[in-house]
Amino acid sequence: MLEARLEQANLLKKVVDAIKDLVQDCNFDCNDSGIALQAMDNSHVALVSMMLKSESFSPFRCDRNIALGINLGSLTKVLRCAQNEDILTLKAEDAPDVVNLVFESAETDRISEYDIKLMDIDQEHLGIPETEYAATITMPSAEFQRICRDLSALSESVSIECSKEGVKFNCQGDIGSGSIHLRSHTNVDKPELNVEIDLTEPVSLTFSLKYLVNFCKASGLSNQVKLCLSNEVPLLVEYALSNNSYLRFYLAPKIGD
């Protein structure tokens, strides 16, 4: 059986909120290392990969591998019934028909309990190759969100160019063009504002802004976001969570002519 207790329902609420517009039905794969999810969007352009390590729960118990096939719309409805600060416990039997969610308020004696019917989801898993990326950019997640939002007003695509000069986000649209240039930046008082650019080779890639704007819904999960790029491979956008847990998005590039 599975029993996983989260100190704050908020974490799961934010994760599900960040991915529910990209993927609808997906398996939460539970085993003794934690709860993982991997799913492509319908058009097979983006891939979501979530890992909530067992250390992110206290306690965490999962005796055998269980795949919980859940509709994220349904999960969202139930998670809305939890307060952000509620303690959340997920429970499931070994061959479950439902997943059970219990929300406990630490302040009051209120305990609420919901069951969500599970679905049989035949989901392919993709092997994600280990990649030594040519460029890794760590920056404030709010800054990345702003860049994607601003440029999406002008164009469908953004080119991300990383060189010794820094990183440049460029777009061209019908009304004109826009570009934002960032350099490495260290703020001792506010390290969450740091921009770190780790470059082994110059990179230039083009991506759909629609997907990037979607990924940025995860901005509330982490002050910083990591962008990993290599020429002609999918972009990795990573939001690191506590205890080595993470929410990652991969986006296939647009490649020309």
Partner: peptide, 14 residues
Amino acid sequence: GKNQKSILGFFQKK
């Protein structure tokens, strides 16, 4: 112009 690639062109099904 540039064409949107599929993620399946990069990551193989297990």
